[in-house]
Design a protein around this nucleic acid. Structure first.
Length: 470
RNA sequence: GGCGACGUCGCCAAGUGGUAAGGCAGGGGCCUGCAAAGCCCUUAUCCCCGGUUCGAAUCCGGGCGUCGCCUCCA
C-alpha cells in the first residue's frame, strides 16, 4: 500500500515496523462538547484505514485517545457548576454513542490522558534531564530551539514562527515558542502530584506518552485532522524524538469538512453535530458522503451533497435487493466476461485503496459493477447468468464492509423511517393488486397516490409489488 | 506578512506525461395499463497565458480565484 506521509510530503510504500502488523495512533477528541461532522470525517477515515489493513490480513492495533483534562473541559465544568470529570465522562459517552451510530468501530485501545499521568510525568522528567525541558513558575516548558528537527513536519522555520507569533504574555518562558509540557494547577483545577508540585499535563505531551506507552517507542502511523499538524503533531515529534524515540514512521492527516467553502469549526459556529445529521440521514449515507472525496481533500457539507449520497446508496441497495431474488448456483459457469467482472471488482477495489486509500475510486469500481449486473438482471438470462449477479452482490457487500457501507438488509434499508404501519401498507398493496388484476386502473392508481402522499413509493415487477420510502 | 493546498461536464468527484472513472441532476428511448426501479443513448479537453515534450488535466514559469495553517480546533 502507498500512503501519503505528511513528514515527507510524498506517497510512500507502507512498510510496517513489524511484518504483518500495523500500529496506528489517531488523536481523538477533547471531550468538552458533542462531536460534529468534522470529527466524524476523521473517525470514519481512520476506521476505514483500519478496516482496510484488516481486509488485507494485517493485524491492526488502533489507538484513539480521549483528552479528558484540558482548559476547555475545566471552563465548561465551571460554567455548569459540575466537576470536570462529569463533563469528560458525559462527552465520552456521547462520543461512543455517536460514533457507534455512525458505524465507526471502537479502537483497539481508547486511552484517557488521566489514566497515563505516570507515563506523562516520566516523559517530562526524561526531557528535563536531557536539557530539553525546564521548570519555571510551577510549569514545565519544552525548549523548542534545543530540538534540531523542530518544524520538519509542518515545514515551518523557527525564526519565521518567531516573527509571526502572537506574543503570549508569559514572562516565565525562556522563548515565546516554548510550549507547556506540564501546567501548575490553580485552586479548583484537576491536579496530580509531580516533581514540580501539583499540576496537570499540557495538551501535546499526553499523546506522546500514551502512543509510546501502548504502541512502543517506534510505531507505524500517527495522525489526525490537518489542523493538528501544527503545532500539536510538530510538538509531539519534538517531545518524543527529543526523548530518543523513533516515534511514528508515517504521518497521515485528513482534510476538513467545509460549509459554504469554509472550515466547519467550533469557533466559527458553523457546525452540525453528528447527532443532528444522523437524525436526518442514515449512517451509511453520511459515510458514503464522507468517503466520496479523497480523505486529504476538503469536502463541502450541504443538504444537497447528502441527498446525492442518499441517492447513490439507494442505487446500490436497489441492486442488492434485485440480486437477492436471483438464482444462486455455480456462478463461475457464467460467461467469462461476467466472471471476470466479479473477480475484477475486488482487484479494482483493492488497487484503489492501495493508492493512498482512494475511497472515491473504490466506490466507482463498485458502481461500475452495479450497472453491469443490473443489466444482467434486467436482461434475465440463464441460471448461471442470474447466479453471477448474486455473486457480484455478495462481493459488493464484502468490499462494502471495508468502507462500512451496504451492510443493511436491502428491504430493511428501503423500509426504514416509514411512519405508516407495515401491515397496513401491505394490505393496501393487496387491494391494489386485486384492482390491477381486474384492470380497475383508476382504483389502483388511487391507492398508489394515497400511499405516495404518505411517502411510500410502489414498485411493480413480475406480478409482485414492493414498496420503499420516498 | 510567512508557509501550503486547490481550481476537471449543470452539481459532486476520480484521474500526476500517452490521449478525460464514477455518482447526482437533465434530455431522448426501452420496459410498464400508467408509473417507479432498472437498462440503453446523450452532455467536458480539464481557470487564463506562456514554456518543456513526439505527446500535458497531469511537469515548469506567470496571472486570476478559492481555501487552510501560522492561536484552541478532527
Amino acid at each position: 500500500m502507498r500512503l501519503y506521509n505528511s513528514l515527507t510530503g510524498k506517497k510512500e510504500k507502507f512498510v510496517p515496523v513489524k511484518a504483518g502488523e500495523v500500529s496506528i495512533y489517531a488523536c481523538g477528541v477533547t471531550v468538552y462538547d458533542h462531536c460534529h461532522v468534522g470529527h466524524a470525517r476523521g473517525a470514519v477515515f481512520f476506521d476505514v484505514l483500519r478496516r482496510y489493513f484488516e481486509h488485507r490480513g494485517l493485524k491492526v492495533t488502533y489507538v484513539r485517545n480521549f483528552t479528558d483534562v484540558d482548559d476547555k473541559i475545566i471552563r465548561r465544568a465551571h460554567e455548569e457548576g459540575v466537576s470536570w470529570r462529569e463533563i469528560a465522562n458525559r462527552y465520552i459517552e456521547a462520543h461512543e454513542r455517536d460514533m457507534g451510530a455512525l458505524g465507526v468501530r471502537p479502537a483497539t485501545i481508547e486511552p484517557k490522558a488521566t489514566d497515563h499521568i505516570g507515563e506523562i510525568i516520566a516523559l517530562v522528567r526524561d526531557l528535563e534531564e536531557r536539557g530539553l525541558a525546564y521548570a519555571a513558575g510551577g510549569d514545565v516548558f519544552f525548549r523548542v530551539r534545543r530540538f534540531p528537527g523542530y518544524g520538519r513536519l509542518s515545514g515551518k522555520k523557527i525564526d519565521e514562527l518567531e516573527s509571526g507569533a502572537r506574543i503570549e504574555v508569559n514572562e516565565v518562558k525562556e522563548d515565546p515558542l516554548d510550549f507547556a509540557l506540564w501546567k501548575g494547577s490553580k485552586a479548583g483545577e484537576p491536579a496530580w502530584e509531580s516533581p514540580w508540585g501539583l499540576g496537570r499535563p499540557g495538551w501535546h505531551i499526553e499523546c506522546s506518552a500514551m502512543s509510546m506507552a501502548i504502541l512502543g517507542r517506534e510505531f507505524d502511523i500517527h495522525g489526525g485532522g490537518r489542523d493538528l499538524l501544527f503545532p500539536h503533531h510538530e510538538n509531539e515529534i519534538a517531545q518524543s524524538c527529543g526523548a530518543g524515540a523513533g516515534f511514528a514512521h508515517c504521518w497521515v492527516h485528513n482534510g476538513f469538512v467545509n460549509i459554504n467553502n469554509e472550515k466547519m469549526s467550533k469557533s466559527l459556529g458553523n457546525f452540525f453535530t453528528i447527532r443532528e445529521i444522523l437524525d436526518r440521514f442514515p449512517a451509511e449515507v453520511v459515510r458514503l458522503f464522507l468517503l466520496s472525496t479523497h480523505y486529504r481533500s476538503p469536502i463541502d457539507f450541504s443538504d444537497r451533497a447528502l441527498a446525492e449520497a442518499r441517492a447513490a446508496v439507494d442505487r446500490v441497495y436497489s441492486f442488492l435487493r434485485g440480486a437477492v431474488r436471483a438464482a444462486t448456483g455455480d456462478w463461475r459457469a457464467a460467461g467469462a466476461e461476467l466472471v471476470a467482472a466479479v473477480d475484477g471488482l475486488a482487484a479494482d477495489f483493492d488497487a484503489a485503496m492501495e493508492d493512498d486509500l482512494n475511497t472515491a475510486a473504490a466506490l466507482a469500481a463498485i458502481f461500475e459493477r452495479v450497472r453491469l449486473f443490473n443489466r444482467v438482471l434486467t436482461e434475465g438470462g440463464d441460471a448461471a447468468g442470474q447466479a453471477v449477479a448474486a455473486a457480484a452482490a455478495a462481493q459488493v457487500r464484502r468490499l462494502g464492509a471495508v468502507l462500512g457501507l451496504f451492510q443493511d438488509d436491502p428491504e430493511g434499508w428501503f423500509h426504514a423511517g416509514v411512519e405508516l404501519d407495515e401491515q397496513q401498507i401491505e394490505a393496501r398493496i393487496g387491494e391494489r393488486l386485486a384492482a390491477r388484476a381486474a384492470k380497475a386502473w383508476a382504483r389502483a392508481d388511487a391507492i398508489r397516490d394515497e400511499l405516495a402522499a404518505a411517502g411510500i413509493v410502489l414498485e411493480d415487477r413480475a406480478g409482485t409489488t414492493t414498496w420503499r420510502r420516498g
